[in-house]
């Protein structure tokens, strides 16, 4: 989402006088609308500053913080061979999701760089291929978990703005989980196709054939009549209690 916004953005007002503006990231430009220095008015383009890209510090406190967590305790082992990214399920879909690079940024405490990936750093699907293949047993899959927790801690604003929950999907999920104790894949599929405006594809030839087949062998009815797990009422109560507790904790901390 954030990437799309960046691509569509017209040359921002910020730093618009810089000739090769497209080469410079927004957050590297410092500009004041109205600025007076020593009685001289330097408003507008006269006070445009471009911050250096040069890193001038390795911050090991971040490294130590990660190392103290259970999931991130092996961060010191990583030697950046890239086996994790090479075996990653997500990287081919989101090139910006790169476990190797994330681990490196964590090692050197490069928060400036990490901040750029708030939107994708959560994409790990937990397939654990990386952890199985890692030659140094770093356990990158769980390192991604450590990363997600720290991103939430260090960049709460970015997380808030860049990771907006789709209320529709959230509602479908909550209804299904709380109402039935399991996901209704058919319902999710239909809702996502509707969202993309591809409802017509739902009744293509393949789908119609499949529906006939499923009606014939009876599977269609079990899909429509989504059953509930055993003893569901107790589980449901526990889940609702948990959600309520979380809400009160969030409210009191805020």
């Amino acid at each position: 989402m954030a990437l799309e916004n960046q691509e569509k953005r017209p040359v921002a007002e910020k730093g618009e006088h810089i000739i090769a503006r497209h080469l410079i990231e927004d957050d590297r430009i410092e500009e004041e609308k109205n600025l007076v220095i020593d009685g001289v008015d330097v408003s507008g383009r006269w006070n445009t500053f471009i911050l250096s890209r040069v890193d001038s510090d390795f911050d090991r406190s971040f490294f130590r913080e990660i190392k103290d967590t259970v999931v991130g305790s092996r961060i010191n082992r990583c030697w950046q061979c890239g086996m994790c990214t090479a075996s990653c399920t997500v990287t081919p879909l989101y090139r910006r999701f790169n476990p190797r690079a994330f681990i490196y940024m964590m090692q050197l405490g490069n928060l400036k760089e990490l901040k750029k990936y708030v939107d994708v750093a959560w994409r790990c699907v937990g397939c654990y291929k990386c952890s199985q293949r890692c030659p140094k047993q770093v356990n990158p899959a769980e390192m991604m978990e450590a990363l997600a927790l720290l991103i939430k801690k260090y960049f709460p604003e970015e997380v808030e703005s860049k990771l907006k929950v789709d209320e529709n999907v959230k509602k479908i999920y909550e209804d299904m989980i709380l109402g039935h104790g399991r996901l209704d894949l058919a319902k999710l599929h239909i809702s996502s196709m509707q969202k993309m405006g591809r409802t017509k594809e739902l009744i293509g030839k393949i789908e119609i054939d499949a529906i006939f087949k499923m009606v014939k062998d009876g599977r269609a009815f079990s899909v429509l009549r989504l059953s509930r797990p055993h003893n569901w009422r107790k589980s449901k109560e526990a889940m609702e209690n948990y959600l309520k507790n979380i809400k009160t904790i969030e409210q009191t901390t805020i």
Binding site: V54, R100, Y104
Partner: peptide, 12 residues
């Protein structure tokens, strides 16, 4: 240059 992140550095 940090060749893994493609970033220049000047560290004291």
């Amino acid at each position: 240059e940090d060749t893994l992140l493609r970033g220049p550095f000047e560290i004291p």
